[in-house]
Write a protein that binds this DNA or RNA. Structure first.
Lengths: 213, 213
DNA sequence: TTGATGTTTGACCATATGGTCAGTCTCAGG
DNA sequence: CCTGAGACTGACCATATGGTCAAACATCAA
């Protein structure tokens, strides 16, 4: 009886854990935690259920592993926002990075959305800790830019929320977006263009007037 | 043996069905379809499980009833957008109505979000039908306004998406928003102000330039 | 080849859950 | 006060599901 999840992980260990996590991401993101079953995950991974449980202690453990790995990559784009950069460019770059994430990692986005929708029972800590500090920090930067008149002065927290909402919408509500647009559209490309306009207009300081709206 | 869900519904019938739907909305919106159990619903309704099933044929039937009732109220705010009105006001009114819905009916918003997230298995029809037609219709109106220069010309479909994303975010991601803002905030009031600025800036035609961005 | 370590699985278990049913209780109308 | 249609429930069932375990199998260094 050996504990697989130790430092002595062989090639096959790492590989199978990876395969399981990949399969679990598929299933959890599509069905939610309670909707997903170990059989589905095992089947998607091409392994037997007991074998899956040989690599992970429980269904919950798989889910937690996915979530914990998620927060970091989720925060990365915001972390990259450079206080020393050109304000509008920095924010537009952030928007671009977030759309790319929605396009390239929609399952991760949905996994996250599922979790928050259910009240974030397993992420409350990370949200009130890591996430909040980073947002507060970057919001202060953006608020500073606004106060200096380098961009329009808008509530920085809600600006960040709006970026999250607008970009993640295209991953989380993908089916709806595609159904409404109909065939022959590239939602993410169009979104990229639309959002660039939106945030440019929102943040470009009006020439000759400080903030009358 | 009588079928309760006929036209001959007594006072107690209507009342209990209402109580059950109310309880089910609580549970489904918080746990998702698969996460919700009949026991939870029955308990929340203050009824026994068999009694719940005396009023509804199945768990699925309750869920469907909620969803079908939802689409109409969900479309109402967009329906109210008046082609004969003042463009910017019409759109800002729509935004206001949608925020009020997020504030006053967050459970409905989450129920909807849950459904779309899971790929909208039970709403695909309504989305490709009712929803798409209405959006196409109103998008044409907004597109017309843009072409006439009464508002900035932006992609009308994505404009509507952005309104959905920005308003529903505050209902669906409520816990995250509140966690990040910290205590002493009224997310919906702040969001209302922020979004008014956002859409005003986006849609107000730049004076002296047609559309150079 | 062999033994030890690591990997895999069929069979099984306990519990949760959607749903059924026979029968009991309630109460409005006669 | 009766009575029967309507409202309700305890007990039960079948299945799904997370998880366990002993035993079989694979791999590889000695």
């Amino acid at each position: 009886m050996s504990e697989p999840n130790t430092r002595t992980s062989s090639r096959i260990q790492r590989q199978n854990r990876e395969v399981i996590l990949e399969a679990a991401l598929d299933v959890f993101s599509a069905q939610g935690f309670r909707g997903a079953t170990l059989d589905q995950i095992a089947s998607a991974a091409g392994l037997s259920k007991p074998n899956v449980l040989y690599y992970f202690a429980s269904k919950e453990a798989i889910h937690l592993e996915l979530l914990s790995g998620l927060m970091d990559s989720w925060l990365a784009p915001l972390r990259a926002l450079d206080p020393a950069g050109e304000p509008l460019d920095e924010i537009l770059d952030y928007v671009r990075r977030k759309i790319e994430m929605s396009r390239d990692y929609p399952r991760e986005s949905r996994l996250f959305a599922n979790e928050i929708l259910q009240g974030a029972p397993r992420m409350a800590e990370a949200i009130e800790g890591e996430l909040k500090s980073l947002v507060d920090e970057k919001a202060a930067v953006i608020g500073g830019w606004g106060a200096e008149g380098r961009i329009s002065a808008v509530d920085p927290h809600h600006l960040i929320f709006s970026i999250w909402a607008l970009t993640q919408h295209y991953a989380d509500f993908d089916v709806q977006v595609r159904a409404v647009l109909g065939p022959g559209h590239d939602p993410f490309a169009e979104a990229g263009r639309f959002l660039e306009v939106l945030f440019t207009r929102l943040l470009t300081p009006a020439v000759g007037q400080t903030s009358d709206i």
